[in-house]
Nucleic acid binder design. Structure first.
Length: 458
RNA sequence: GUGGUUGUAGCUCAGCUGGUUAGAGCGCUGGUUUGUGGUACCAGAAGUCGCCGGUUCGAACCCGGUCUUCCACCCCA
């Protein structure tokens, strides 16, 4: 054999059974997106570099896959730039396009570009792959799917409430019980920073706070100190580390803590609204909890922040996230359009469902009936049968050669076919066929003209 | 991007301080059983030991490089 071919780092092939299981998730997500009134759009796999660069921070820029220009691109670079060997000045000259990094920024671009055709508020969903030049790990790939649902053109908190319901609806349908929807608000984080006197260091403050569950209180304090947050400020923030109790209790404590901050108070009010509405309508299987340490996410979030973590006991990063961004389209020149959205991480949800054994057994049945092939004459009759079954919508197939019965049965078995039809010389003579139920081994004989009776039993 | 880790049959993995023809289980193929799979028994096929180079009389094993896997940072779905 020649040297084995391979695929790039962080990418995967999907086998039939994997594709079926992935589609199972896609279908459920899509179904709920639609029942919540979201409309589908798609955008190109690659965008102009200007559209993407600078939208995700320095770290993000590094992770964007750039596409080389076509043609003899290097000859068009001036000598100074070329010999400087400086990537950041050379890259824009040889690459004008880049692969989509997420679905939110292309969506913002879409909204701005099509603003005159869109009826606001616009609820759109989008299920497409994105690419990141990240170092792969478990549940972390260079090509993966995002399933996004966003609403633009409405600043009503009702949207946040509905998005929480949407998360709950999808995970309930997937039988993935006990997921934790964590909720925070950027305004609360800003309020805290303001109250403790670290308002000008908000990003460093929140990034450090986000690590609380990972590196503990001491670790967080150490990092804050290293990032230039004063000791007195950290001292003032200490109550955050001991924020516990029910959601309402936490809110009350926050309200007290943030009473001197206008923005902080606003954040508490917003959270309270969402929690109260959700309490009224109830959730089916998900948990909703306040988590002030939740700071994940891009710097464009301005209001609510969501993150969904897998049920306890499953080692997996977040399986979904989202939030409100008051000014997302602003970066493309359209002011005062507020948006809020959530995302489902298909690939990670897949890993979680697989680990917990939550994929339904039946989805791997890609065939309802297989006819055993006993030779030319018998096969002709079996083909007639198969044709009738197919036109009745039954997924039926006939084994292509009259291989040994054992082999054909084994094939049916490994394909998870629930029924096998036997139509040999004897049956041909009697104008009958035998149906074998592969799960219990029972066999039943039908006349040719009684095929509908068999179909009815499927 | 930083530090570490992994790669041996289709799959999961053994393989001693370097020493003849590199092993197991599962799977696969054939048979026991020419009209019965999922169980059992028997037999068989299948590996330039990730790739390139070096050290050595001799390398799956030691050294360097490279790709890949996973892990911790970073960041994130």
């Amino acid at each position: 054999m020649a040297q084995k071919p391979s695929i790039p780092k962080g990418t995967r092939d999907f086998s039939p059974s994997e594709v079926i299981k992935r589609n199972y998730i896609f279908d459920i997500v899509k179904k709920h997106f639609q029942t919540f009134g979201f409309q589908p759009i798609e955008t190109p796999s690659f965008e102009n570099s200007d559209t993407l660069m600078g939208k995700y921070g320095d770290e993000g820029d590094r992770l964007i896959f750039k596409i080389l220009n076509s043609g003899d691109f290097i000859s068009k670079v001036d000598d100074v730039t070329y010999s400087s060997k400086n990537s950041s000045s050379l890259t824009p000259k040889i690459s004008e396009k880049a692969l989509r990094y997420d679905l939110t920024v292309p969506f913002a671009r879409y909204v701005v570009q099509h603003q005159n055709e869109i009826d606001f508020p616009f609820k759109r969903y989008q299920i497409q792959p994105v690419w990141r030049a990240d170092r792969p790990q478990k549940g972390r790939f260079r090509e993966f799917y995002q399933c996004d649902a966003d609403v633009v053109g409405s600043d009503s908190l009702l949207q946040e409430v509905e998005l929480v319901q949407l998360y709950d609806a999808v995970f309930t349908s997937l039988k993935l019980e006990g997921v934790n929807i964590k909720l925070n608000n950027r305004k609360i984080l800003a309020g805290i920073a303001e109250v403790i006197g670290a308002g000008n260091n908000l990003i460093n403050f929140t990034v450090a706070l986000d690590k609380l569950d990972k590196i503990g209180e001491e670790g967080v304090k150490k990092e804050m100190l290293a990032k230039g947050i004063s000791e007195t400020a950290i001292e003032k923030a200490s109550p955050l580390f001991y924020l516990n109790g029910s959601n309402t209790e936490q809110l009350d404590k926050l309200q007290y803590l943030l009473s001197s901050s206008e923005v902080g108070t606003k954040g508490v009010e917003e959270l309270r609204f969402i929690l109260e509405f959700i309490e009224e309508v109830g959730l089916q299987s998900a948990k909703l909890s306040i988590d002030v340490t939740l700071a994940r996410g891009l710097n464009y979030y301005t209001g609510a922040i969501f993150e969904v973590s897998a049920p306890e006991g499953v080692q997996m990063g977040s399986i979904g996230g989202g939030g409100r961004y008051d000014d997302l389209t602003g970066i493309f020149g359209l002011k005062n359009v507020s948006g809020v959205g959530i995302s489902f991480g298909l690939d990670r949800i897949y890993l979680v469902l697989e680990e917990l054994g939550l994929f339904p057994k039946t989805i791997e049945q890609s065939l309802d009936v297989l006819c055993v092939n006993f030779g030319e004459q018998e096969a002709l009759e079996a083909l007639r049968l198969t044709t009738q079954l197919r036109s009745a919508g039954v997924r039926a197939d006939i084994y292509p050669s009259d291989a040994k019965m054992q082999k054909q049965m084994k094939f049916a078995n490994s394909r998870n076919v629930p029924y096998v039809i036997l139509l040999g010389a004897q049956e041909l003579k009697d104008k009958t066929f035998v149906v074998k139920n592969m799960s219990n081994g029972e066999q039943e004989t039908y006349n040719f003209d009684a095929i509908d009776d068999f179909i009815a039993k499927l």
